[in-house]
Nucleic acid binder design. Structure first.
Lengths: 336, 336
DNA sequence: CTGAAAGCGCTTACAG
DNA sequence: CTGAAAGCGCTTACAG
């Protein structure tokens, strides 16, 4: 009564397991199963509430129809949205998605990669941590389908999909310069990852290109895991000591911390301080004043990553080394 | 080279598959495998990077060591935090967690329940939708380990863990009344779920108990899936038409919409309007002024739910009908 | 002290 | 037109 198996159906219908399998997998025609038998089997299966045990199917076919998704932090808006879009897209092709958060912790990321691998996922979608290159390289060696997202590892040639980080910061900076801001600070984080390096680089280079207008860069680099109050204090000090008239945050959670600092300093935006943040967020839209941001086209990133992964899974021999960069978008709001 | 199986190890070590299995599962002693053989097997397994295929283990043992988690919406802060705590707690006991969002859509919830079931999860943690009682009843009939969370179904006797919704709203209301507010509006949603009904009830009853001070309740019930701009407009009209001096939102996303309305109306909190919201959220902490909320003890809910589920899984015959209610907490901030 | 065998629930060549 | 058999990768009584 509890769990009905293929065998049970076979017994009830008075046929062999193979016949049941063929019928239930829509191969009745190719296998030339007679209509009456096929119908009988279908009816019995339906009535008894039979559903194949996916574990057994996966073991037998060697395909779990599951994609393993490793994001930095699923409770972060950006990654939550990314995961959602990926799931929708994967579902279209009959794939399930299992997702996990690395929290930028190498040990955790490695363990999760192992776990997904033991669970026999068919492919990986990964936002890598900085020291995970060995593991990624190994996946590549084993020809396991995989696409990196949001960032990539310069030391390993893999397919990836990410936003053009350089262009994003550049666009935001040019906007600030155009509006007449001259003391523009940049707050970033000491994550040794390519996407952050590109953002930092874009800031420095843009300042440099406009050295006639802008004397000097002001860069504050916070620690990834430091207590939030410490970061808030450092940002406050940074704003005051450098007499900033504008501030650029390199990622959404930094921007949210920045709002705390700005609030504590009782600075009026944009009059006393302008602000731009990389990555959009509900908080920025709801804030008074609303905050100008650089928005990543999350849906496009998701779609693109899934497509490349599926292409790999279908054609294992020739792993696509496809590397995609998508342009972000400046969302103009009241803070600049 | 790619995937090493138990058999491969057995061949390499020159022993049988059973011996390898015993050693690798720490049963070398009970099975009296000789030390040298055991060591040899361990060494070979390590060197060749062997890891058991979890699909096969699950199929054979009948346990997937996986818990299926069905939440309303993983991109909602509350559920994201809940999922995170549940995962941490489950991991302690060697369980993985697969999570999915119902988005309060019955069809989707049913399909996901099916999917999890076919995937052979060992137990279910569920935030039910309103018309899913049949499916839940079926799980109960089949004695599948299960705990409902956040809400329960009055028509099905199941174990559950949730916050005392009545007490939460009552506490918030008493706080508002104490502070001298007399025209207190309540914004809720037409989800036909018990947790919302309790919150509504608490509002009405508290008003009723204080009828000497408060003339009449003002209740606005929004549609769950209506466009956000419509909701925002309705809330604005509600505030103005009823000349409210305080407003209570029955859940976090309504509160966030409310912030939009209040912003558009340019009302100063708490002078022109006080606000309380059920469920805490970063946005409320970062808002100017900060918003008073009723916070659910999410970690406790998670811990408790996992504990009850594990108890069920270990003792299938006697399903615990445990029903737990936890008290929420009033977080006083500047909006009241 | 160790191995052969059965079986978890499926799918899929192969045979007739 | 349908069935018997092998096998996916494991675990676990059973036997010796």
């Amino acid at each position: 009564m509890k769990k009905v198996s293929l065998k049970d159906i076979a017994k009830l219908a008075g046929v062999s397991a193979s016949t049941v399998s063929f019928v239930l997998n829509g191969k009745a025609d190719t296998m030339r199963i007679s209509k009456p038998i096929a119908d009988k089997i279908t009816a019995i299966a339906k009535k008894s509430g039979y559903h194949p045990n996916q574990l057994a199917v996966s073991l037998r076919t060697g395909q779990s129809k599951t994609i393993g998704l490793l994001v930095e932090d699923i409770s972060n808006n950006f990654f939550a949205a990314l995961a959602k879009f990926i799931e929708d897209e994967a579902n279209k092709y009959g794939y399930k998605v299992v997702y996990c958060s690395t929290e930028n912790n190498n040990q955790k990321a490695k363990a999760l990669l192992q776990m997904l691998s033991h669970q026999q996922v068919d492919g990986f979608l990964i936002t890598p941590t900085d020291k995970i290159d060995k593991d990624i390289q190994q996946l590549m060696d084993y020809k396991r389908p995989m696409v990196l997202m949001d960032r990539f590892l310069p030391s390993v040639a893999t397919p990836y999909v990410l936003v053009n980080n350089f262009a994003g910061v550049e666009t935001g900076m040019l906007h600030l310069i155009e509006r007449g801001y001259r003391n523009i600070g940049f707050v970033t984080v000491d994550l040794n990852m390519i996407q952050m390096q590109k953002r930092d680089e874009a800031y420095i280079q843009t300042i440099h290109k406009h050295k006639k207008l802008i004397k000097t860069p002001f860069l504050l680099r916070l620690h990834y895991n430091e207590p939030t109050e410490d970061s808030v204090k450092k940002i406050s000090a940074f704003i005051q000591n450098s007499a900033l008239d504008a501030i650029f945050f390199s990622t959404n959670y930094l921007g949210i911390l920045g709002l705390e600092s700005i609030k504590q300093l009782k600075l009026k935006m944009p009059d006393q301080l302008a602000m731009v943040c990389f990555d959009d967020h509900d908080i920025f839209r709801l804030h008074t004043p609303e905050i100008t941001t650089i928005r990543q086209p999350i849906k496009e990133i998701a779609r693109s990553a899934v497509q490349i992964l599926l292409a790999q899974m279908e054609n294992k021999k020739q792993l696509f080394k496809k590397q995609v960069e998508i342009m972000p978008q400046l969302i103009l709001r009241a803070s600049t």
